[in-house]
Design a protein around this nucleic acid. Structure first.
Lengths: 199, 199
DNA sequence: TCGCCTACCAAACAAGTGCTTGGTAGGGTA
DNA sequence: TACCCTACCAAGCACTTGTTTGGTAGGCGA
């Protein structure tokens, strides 16, 4: 059987196990997390995981695919909205920080393991999403420059990488429940990014 | 054939092997690189590595320790110099980008494996260095604010993390020999950081 | 009571892991 | 010649890895 049916009644145990796996993948990396680690954390034996999932790969696949789909639903909505490039840029940055707040593990897994996983055919979609992501963000930056909303003397490609990295790398230290909400962090990041830290 | 006697101009076999290991550690991560990977890349058998090194851990230890020592020699020099906080901050950022240029593999290894390695007693010094690093950078930021060189309305701790991450994460995409030198990248990063990207 | 389902255990498997051991080819030194 | 040194090979060890197999306890509808 390719994958257990999830249609009937409670898929709760499966969801629970997936959450435990996500936590461990995020903390130690996909390859450095063993199926025995996951099973131990769940209080079962490693073989029992295979009643719920095809493979270790299937677990991370399901986690990343679900997350990416949801994130892009928001991006698409922002892109199609009636705002200036700079406003759209601010909106996608805020949506990304929200994703760090609501899907911390998935973002962390993507950050640390995407390069490794993309080498497998099964995860080719990660590379495609990444390319689409790059196109969206650089387009918004370029349009912002054209409209005079953003500085024209900077290398757009470099600003893109700067922006992308600063946003996503925050998952390394951000912990929900702290003093700052994802929105608060986004506010300060955008303030730094747009206006700089100099007086 | 290189001169067989030790200590002459040509790099020793040991150095050569260490370089090969660094490349693989940086590319795939420490744990995901096997001793057989290293040996294959060097054209020898895995057991033969143990003629040169105690263990796989020893290799990464030597790489990181050497790198950190050199980097901190520069940081200490900058800290002791006669400059304003903002100038010192710019100098350490530039020194860090230079490190990405000259020790790309070591920086990459530190970025992706420091958390994992710090859990071993042998690598406790990584945690200490990290703490020292945090103190230096936040002190420079605070002093910059006090002197009126930097904005006072931002959370220093958050700016520190922003700054730290933006600098070091660049190792993920920076490739020596490209269009931009480490100095060029540092210039643009500092310009964004200090003045922002808005018009 | 019967059969079926979900969730799990117990045990094993082949492949891969870091590392050890005993040996050897070839060059330099005394 | 005799000896030592560096750099390596060949084979194997104990352990960990993801995964498979056959079996079972307990709940539920008919």
């Amino acid at each position: 059987m390719p994958s257990p049916s999830t249609g009937s009644g409670t898929a709760s145990r499966r969801e629970e196990l997936l959450g435990i796996a996500a936590e461990l993948f995020a903390e130690k990396g996909f390859k450095n997390t063993t199926v025995r680690d996951i099973a131990d954390a769940a209080g079962i034996l490693s073989g029992s995981l295979y009643h719920h999932f095809d493979s270790k790969e299937s677990m991370v696949d399901e986690l990343l695919d679900t997350f990416q789909t949801e994130l892009w639903r928001q991006y698409d909505e922002i892109e199609a909205s009636d705002r200036t490039p700079r406003e759209k840029l601010e909106a996608v940055v805020r949506a990304s920080f929200d994703a760090i707040g609501s899907h911390r593990n998935e973002v962390a897994i993507f950050q640390s393991d995407a390069v490794f996983l993309t080498s497998f055919e099964r995860f080719a979609y990660l590379g495609e999403r990444n390319q689409k992501f790059r196109e969206l963000w650089t387009r918004l930056l370029s349009e912002g420059v054209e409209r005079g909303e953003l500085r024209a003397d900077l290398d757009v490609e470099l600003v893109y990488r700067f922006l992308r990295d600063t946003v996503w790398v925050a998952v390394r230290w951000y912990r929900p429940g702290g003093a700052l909400s994802p929105g608060d962090v986004a506010d300060q990041y955008l303030s730094i990014l747009l206006e700089g830290i100099a007086t």
